[in-house]
């Protein structure tokens, strides 16, 4: 079981969290201006990274808040935890949520 550091509550067991999938997938635009290809990419296509993966977690059975994480999918080690809307690369260098 993963030990996940919620940026608001600290280290908690994985069972308290819900996984939110790949992070930074932005809605492609207004519905009438989005092609079926773009819509399918947004809804379904995923990078499925083997390596450092940016992903969303939610501390469901805790504070209930969403946050992002960088995790190495070849080791399951967390590299960084950062706020929703934050940039993954800048945070990755600090290895800590502020």
């Amino acid at each position: 079981m993963l030990l996940i550091k919620c940026p608001y509550c600290g280290d908690r067991p994985e069972l308290e969290f819900a996984y939110g999938g790949e992070a930074h997938i932005a809605r492609p635009g207004a519905q009438d201006q989005v092609s079926p290809e773009q819509w399918a990419q947004y809804l379904y296509a995923r990078t499925n990274t083997r390596g450092v993966h940016a992903e969303r977690w939610r501390h469901l059975h805790g504070c209930g808040r969403f946050f992002n994480a960088l995790r190495d999918t070849t080791t399951d080690h967390f590299i960084a935890i950062y706020e929703v809307g934050g940039a993954p690369t800048a945070i990755a260098r600090t290895h800590e949520f502020p």
Binding site: M1, L2, E14, A18, Y19, G21, E22, N48, T49, R50, H53, E55, R71, T73, T74, T75, D76
Partner: peptide, 11 residues
């Protein structure tokens, strides 16, 4: 629950 390539999971 999460994307992984480790070929192991949690107990």
């Amino acid at each position: 629950a999460y994307v992984s390539y480790t070929q192991r999971g949690a107990l």
